[in-house]
């Protein structure tokens, strides 16, 4: 198949498995984000793809051809490092032309290519500028241009925006996404910032404990988390401990709740996941199903929305409401929360 394929990729450091049988197919031209907390193995996988780490077992294929044994300098995947790793002894143009010079590209063509790339990253005319004279955002762009200079088959980025302030980070995220869509280059970005992953990726790969927990389009992962880890890591979730009653019912404390589908046998413990924005709050009982009575334990008016917590059956259920839908209740007042059946998802504990 065309694209990048990881087959059972494993990396062990002694007893510790940094990557545990990671298998994934990335079609050509797709933007993939490896997302997960620190130490989940996402950077290890990226480094194995780049050829900077040797897998303990498994295989990496590019367009159907095994490249597992190829060293990094043969793969020549463009990579932007967390530290950017620009060469301080070379100016902007020389940094960008580094790979071209190694390949013996003639000086005139090199010069043209550097100019093209600087145009692409919106830094025209900065060829002779020293790296030390660049701002954070400019360095970021130079690192991207340098990685793209050799027209790599795969473009890798290891948390490249982590050192930037929020505004610049967002600007760079938009620019990178636009650039990737223009060039249609297979891109893999490693990040622990779920917002970054949600806004940039075609596919998110959620990693935890060295394994792929779930992969798919951002919205699909957000709406249908595969397990408790994903539900907890991606966005905010109410994770309620429940017991499975039958194929479509669970009990939360003493309250039976209807759900789309359950997993596991009757009586088995499970987790009911529901996003805060799906929780509906009312003052009086509506008489419908999936209503739990409780006491308001927290209200935070954020202007654009109201965030509330209702203590029900010993646990706080978190919800958000649009200002016009807010019931105007205060702390300690009784309220009812409704958990819409179609929004409740039962996950294995």
């Amino acid at each position: 198949m065309f694209g990048l394929e990881l087959r059972d990729l494993t990396k062990a450091y002694g007893e510790h498995l940094a990557a545990d049988h990671v298998s994934l197919s990335i079609p050509h031209g797709e933007f993939v984000c490896f997302l997960g907390p620190s130490g989940c193995g996402k950077t290890t996988v990226l480094r194995m793809i780049a050829g900077l780490e040797t897998p303990t077992s498994g295989a990496i294929l590019l367009n159907g051809k095994a490249i597992t044994e190829q060293p990094a300098n043969s793969r020549q995947f463009g990579m932007v490092f967390q530290s950017l790793a620009l060469f301080p002894h070379l100016n902007v143009g020389e940094n960008i032309a580094f790979a071209l010079r190694l390949r013996g590209v003639d000086p005139r063509r090199r010069k043209e290519r550097v100019a093209e790339l600087l145009e692409l990253v919106r830094l025209p005319g900065l060829q002779t500028r020293a790296i030390s004279q660049l701002s954070g955002g400019q360095r970021q762009r130079v690192a991207i241009a340098r990685a793209l200079a050799q027209e790599p088959p795969v473009f890798l980025l290891d948390e490249p925006f982590s050192a930037l302030d929020a505004k610049l980070r967002e600007e760079m995220q938009n620019e990178l996404r636009a650039l990737q869509q223009r060039l249609k280059i297979t891109t893999i970005l490693v990040t622990h910032d779920q917002r970054e992953a949600m806004t940039m990726a075609d596919t998110i790969v959620v990693m935890g404990e060295g394994q792929i927990q779930q992969h798919g389009p951002p919205v699909s992962i957000y709406k249908h988390p595969a397990n408790r880890f994903v539900a907890d890591f991606i966005g905010a979730s109410n994770l309620l401990p429940v017991k499975i009653l039958d194929g479509q019912t669970v009990t939360y404390g003493t309250t039976p709740l209807r759900v789309g589908a359950t997993c596991g046998l009757g009586g088995a413990p499970a987790t009911l996941a529901i996003r805060p924005e799906d929780v509906v709050i009312t003052r009086a009982a509506g008489g419908g199903c999936n209503e739990v009575a409780g006491v308001i334990s927290q209200v935070r008016d954020m202007g654009a929305y109201v965030e509330f917590r209702v203590a029900c059956e010993g646990l706080d259920i978190l919800g958000v409401a649009a200002p016009r839908d807010w019931i105007g209740a205060g702390l300690g007042e009784r309220a009812h929360v409704r958990l819409p059946v179609e929004r409740c998802q039962v996950l294995a504990t």
Binding site: P71, Q76, F77, M79, L102, R103
Partner: peptide, 12 residues
């Protein structure tokens, strides 16, 4: 990472 960057650009 500086040396690794050079390697990803084809440097031995």
């Amino acid at each position: 990472e500086v040396e690794q960057a050079a390697a990803t650009m084809g440097a031995s």
